[in-house]
Amino acid sequence: MDNLEIQAKSGSHFKPSVKLDADTGVCEIEGESYLEESSQFYQPIYDWLVEYTKTKKPLLFNFRLSYVNTSSSKHILYILRLLREYGEQGNDMQTNWYIESGDMDTEEDVEDYMIITGLDIKIIKI
């Protein structure tokens, strides 16, 4: 299974960087997600995760998103639900969300994602 990497332009406020590593099971999504064509962006990430979860290998998903626009939110929820199911099936899965200290808006967003999806996300303030 191949790794998936999407490199955002430096300083981009619109497209996050993505690195999904099939060897280590460490997945990162970082930056700001202001996307008009959010389905087009998130579908390959979701598809990659569906394939990876078939391996039953450990999975660590680190979100470092400081802004998710309304159109991107539902795709984030699809990913979070998939992660929850993977964990519920007894697989080794951990989800972290890194938040800049003092960024209450993002912290509340992540808390809301937890309530909606039932996934336990570890909030790490940096």
Binding site: S66, N69, T70, G102
Partner: peptide, 18 residues
């Protein structure tokens, strides 16, 4: 201003633009 306020400012700007 500090990065947290700048971020809040920017988020609001993007939501309104959208």
């Amino acid at each position: 201003s500090d990065t947290v306020l700048k971020r809040k400012f920017f988020k609001l700007f993007l939501e309104l633009a959208q």
